[in-house]
Amino acid sequence: MILSHFTALVIFALIVSTVFALITKNEPREQFRYGVFVFLSFLAVAVVVGWIMYPLPL
């Protein structure tokens, strides 16, 4: 199976944010909000770090 980096990142963020939300929060509404926050944070940080690294000659 070959996934694009972004697809792999989205699936990774989705699974990890689901587990984090269920572990750290108790109420369903809190869990949902925290899960969405963590998921979007994963994506945002990855995109920002990607753009920061873009000009580096690696």
């Binding site: 199976m1 070959i2 996934l3 980096h5 792999a8 990774f12």
Partner: peptide, 10 residues
């Protein structure tokens, strides 16, 4: 394999 690193991290 192109997704080797991702697979190992998963």
């Amino acid at each position: 394999w192109p997704s080797y690193d991702y697979g190992t991290t998963y």
